[in-house]
C-alpha cells in the first residue's frame, strides 16, 4: 500500500508546506513539515497568534493592553502572559538604556516586544509537537529551526533568510544562513519613520534598517527596535556589546556595517 508519508531514513525527503495567516495587523508565514498540519500543531500555533492579537492588540478597545493603558484593570486581572511581557519589556528597557520601552510615545503599547515573542512561541509550539525543521516569519521577523533538506549527502542545509534592501525595494542586501536562530529587522521601508526615540519623542533617524540575529526572536526583535531608535553611532557600540546577538545595519545613505559576530551568519549568494 503506497503511503504519502516518506519512510524515515538518512535520505528521507521532508515534505514542507507553507501557510500564510493574516493576524496582528500583518501576515505570519509558516514553512513547516506536513506533519505539523496533521498533528494539529500548525492550527495550535495559528490559534495562539489570534489569541495574542485579542489580548495584546492596542487597536482593540477590549484587549487587556487597552484596558491596562486606560487603567481600567490591574496587571493581576489580565492574562498571566501580561506579567511575563511586562517583565521582559522592563528588562530590555534597562539593558538598552531606555531606548526600548513598553510605552513609546507615552502610551502603554508593548507591541515592540509582543510580535517577536508571539512568533517565537508559535515556533516553539511546532517544535514541541516534534517539528525539527520550520520557519515562522511574522511580518519580516523570522524564527528558524533546523534547516531545509536533504542536501546531496542527506543532511540539512541552514535556512536562507534574505535581508530586504531598504533602499532598493524588492531586492536583497544579503542572505543569512539560519538554523535554530532568529532574524529580526527594524526599519522604515514599509511603514515610514514610525520608530520613536523615547529620549526625544521624535522618530529615530540615521538608519534605514537594522537586523539582529540571535537565538530568541522576542529579544532579537526588541533589540532591533532599541538599536534603530539609538541611531547609527550608539547602535553600533551597543549591539557589539550584546551577548549571543549580532547586528547588521544599513544607514540612510546606503553605507553598511556589522558587528564582529555577524560575519559567521552571512551566507554565500
Amino acid at each position: 500500500m503506497p503511503s504519502a508519508t516518506p519512510s524515515p531514513g538518512a535520505n528521507a525527503v521532508t515534505v514542507q508546506v507553507r501557510h500564510a495567516e493574516h493576524v496582528m495587523g500583518t501576515v505570519v508565514s509558516f514553512d513547516v513539515p506536513v506533519s505539523a498540519r496533521h498533528d494539529g500543531s500548525l492550527d495550535a500555533a495559528i490559534r495562539w497568534l489570534h489569541w495574542v492579537d485579542r489580548v495584546f492588540s492596542p487597536y482593540r478597545a477590549d484587549s487587556d493592553v487597552s484596558l491596562l493603558a486606560r487603567a481600567e484593570v490591574s496587571v493581576d486581572a489580565c492574562a498571566p502572559e501580561m506579567a511575563e511581557v511586562l517583565a521582559a519589556c522592563a528588562s530590555v528597557r534597562d539593558l538598552s538604556g531606555g531606548y526600548f520601552t513598553a510605552a513609546p510615545g507615552g502610551q502603554f503599547d508593548p507591541s515592540g516586544y509582543v510580535k517577536g515573542w508571539a512568533v517565537e512561541r508559535a515556533a516553539a509550539l511546532l517544535a514541541g509537537a516534534g517539528s525539527a525543521d520550520h520557519v515562522v516569519n511574522g511580518g519580516g521577523d523570522v524564527q528558524c529551526a533546523g534547516g531545509r533538506g536533504p542536501d546531496g549527502s542527506g543532511g540539512r542545509e541552514p535556512w536562507r533568510v534574505g535581508i530586504a534592501d531598504p533602499l532598493r525595494p524588492g531586492r536583497l542586501a544579503l542572505v543569512v544562513a539560519a538554523s535554530d536562530c532568529a532574524v529580526a529587522t527594524s526599519g522604515t521601508a514599509e511603514r515610514g519613520p514610525h520608530i520613536i526615540d523615547p529620549h526625544t519623542g521624535r522618530p529615530a533617524s540615521g538608519l534605514a534598517s537594522l537586523t539582529i540575529v540571535g537565538p530568541s526572536l522576542a529579544l532579537a526583535d526588541a533589540y532591533a527596535t532599541a538599536a534603530f531608535a539609538m541611531g547609527p553611532a550608539r547602535a553600533r557600540d551597543w549591539t557589539a556589546s550584546l551577548e549571543g546577538y549580532a547586528a547588521f545595519a544599513i544607514t540612510g545613505t546606503g553605507a553598511t556595517w556589522h558587528t564582529p559576530g555577524f560575519a559567521r551568519h552571512i551566507a554565500a549568494v
Partner: peptide, 9 residues
C-alpha cells in the same frame, strides 16, 4: 532564499 527579513509590513 527561504524567507525574507525586513521592516515589518
Amino acid at each position: 532564499i527561504d524567507s525574507v527579513s525586513g521592516a515589518t509590513y
